[in-house]
Design a protein around this nucleic acid. Structure first.
Length: 279
DNA sequence: AACTATACCTGCAAGC
DNA sequence: TGCTTGCAGGTATAGT
């Protein structure tokens, strides 16, 4: 489900409902998520604490508590977070429930279990979780010079480079294709080849597309209140992702699909030229 | 060091 | 209908 825009939409949806609420208890399934269930920490740090903020870092959602601790969710590929009445029927793959003081509960549902829940007890503990995560693409420091420096002499395809969470946080497989199309950069172009001008374009496109996607409610379902959920409508704006063989919206050439680092990558051979350059 | 392949899971759609 | 195959929005790791 979630790249940065989807996670941000979920955060925005949850925030007003969670702020000021007290987490009175927790329950979890016996299935193992990507990380072990933090049972002890949930009891010692989370139970009976009040929510003071709901934040996002990369693709993580942080629920900050009055005691300085935080519950940190990652949604993996199929994770969902939603608020439900406590007595509403539970469904398959509900793995964590945080019971609130208003007869609602936050439920984490994840079919593939690539997601995770972590509890950090302090500011340092929270920082530790994010030590190796790169810059926020919507933040001030995310600039063309930063990317130029980071790229250094790396020959890795620019698509893989931009999906490296140590470089930039939250750019996933859908939006990276869209960003590179917007910037007219071929996904196979080695990262080290890009000029400052190209990086400037890439940064502008990245910001533009992620912001648009957030405004549109993301590319998929963001069901943060009730069982119903609301569909994001950014998929209508996708230029290349998932459009193999269909005409490029800019030049009508068929959109191409290749596999990079095991992931589908979509682009237009005409609008995104692979530049041969010796260096 | 840099980069790629693989593993982790379930569900769904397409093809036979 | 039922089976098999391939594919899916992520990331840590093992391997080259």
């Amino acid at each position: 489900m979630p790249e940065l825009p989807e996670v941000e939409v979920i955060r925005q949806g949850l925030s007003p409902h969670l702020l000021g609420r007290r987490i009175i208890a927790w329950r979890c399934s016996n299935k193992k998520l990507r990380l072990p269930m933090p049972r002890k920490a949930l009891t010692s740090w989370v139970e009976s604490e009040e929510v003071v903020a709901v934040e996002r870092r990369a693709k993580y959602i942080l629920i900050r508590l009055a005691n300085g601790a935080a519950v940190i969710f990652h949604l993996g590929m199929t994770g969902r977070l939603g608020l439900f009445p406590v007595r509403s029927p539970r469904v398959k793959h509900d793995h964590v429930r945080l019971l609130l003081d208003n007869n609602l509960e936050l439920r984490f549902n994840d079919a593939r279990r690539f997601g995770s829940i972590q509890v950090a007890g302090s500011r340092e503990g929270i920082n530790d979780i994010f030590v190796s995560i790169g810059l926020e693409p919507l933040g001030r420091e995310f600039t063309a010079t930063y990317l130029l420096t980071k790229a250094g002499t790396r020959h890795q395809p620019v698509k893989n480079f931009l999906m490296d969470s140590r470089v930039v946080a939250g750019v996933g497989n859908i939006y990276v294709s869209e960003i590179l199309f917007c910037a007219g950069i071929h996904p196979l172009q080695p990262a080290a080849d890009l000029t400052l001008k190209q990086w400037q374009l890439a940064v502008r496109c990245c910001r533009k597309i992620l912001r648009q996607a957030i405004v549109c409610g993301g590319t998929t379902i963001a069901d943060y209140v009730n069982a119903g959920g609301e569909a994001g409508y950014f998929q209508q704006k996708l230029q290349v992702y998932g459009r193999k063989g269909q005409p490029c919206r800019r030049c009508k050439n068929p959109v191409a699909r290749i596999v990079l680092a095991g992931r589908s990558s979509f682009f237009c051979n005409n609008c995104q030229r692979l530049e041969k350059r010796q260096s």
